[in-house]
Amino acid sequence: MTMADRIPAPAAQPRADAPETARLGFRLTLPAQILVLFISVFPLLMQLYISLTDWSPLAGVSWPHAWEYWNSFANYTDILGDGRLWSALWRTALVIMVCVPVEFLLGLALATLFVDDFPGKRVAYSVLIMPMMVVPAVAGYMFFMLFQSGGPVNDILSWFTPEPVTLAWLSDPTLALVAVMAADIWQWTPLMFLILLAGLVGVPDDQLKAAALLGASPWARFRTIVIPRMKTIIVIALSIRVIEAFKIFDTLYIMTGGGPGVATETISVYIYKITTQDLIWGYVAAIALFILIALSVAAVWAMKRMAK
């Protein structure tokens, strides 16, 4: 297993039958290009348009007439003052900053245990990767049931305490957030485990043996050989997880609906609510573009840093 250089650059070879291949290549890529355009160009333009208005589907006119509700950049300035939005962003950041490192460390620890062969490895591996294949919405419901005040989590905790534990997880702002994080960690640690194991296995065994023969302890070998050689994979795993964690919705929404109150309201939940409940779509469009721009800038910055 190797890290293949997957920088998006094609390897085109000019051939004797170039015109035919160019035509065929064009036709082959056409459906994908159309679908991509369909989903990016029109939505983008439309959102640009209505983000400069006060339009809502309740307004009684269809969206092309949104100009009647023109308010130029008022939505964008509203973003700056929208406390609930920034809280949601902060909460999302909090979830990322807690869950991703925990998933990473747990996944790495598990992966180190799976590098050698041992009896039952296949079965254990198949079971351990199951959580990430559970439908996220269903996982949300599973954890909803688990964290009921009369439910299994409290039951298990009660084994360790003299009196029965009756924490009201989903009704308490802090506990609800913990519960949501627990669900995320349960579901996505296997992903880190999967990717990091693939990386660990790629560390040449010879070099590890050579290091051991030169007197390096297992921890020293891990520190000086394993981790440095896994740098790219670690970056990939963390990036994927951070991006997905930012989008977190299904599991969380079904578990808590964003509550109690707004205690577990992440950015996607917030946008969902104002889209479907308050229906202030002009404003939502502005938020959407704001996020799009912010993420694009972050992505470009990250790519520049990685290229170094």
Binding site: K209, A210, A212, L213, G215, A216
Partner: peptide, 14 residues
């Protein structure tokens, strides 16, 4: 193996 005081050269040098 870390304490035997042997030097080892691998086939691919490692």
């Amino acid at each position: 193996m870390g304490r035997r005081g042997v030097g080892f050269v691998f086939q691919n040098y490692a």
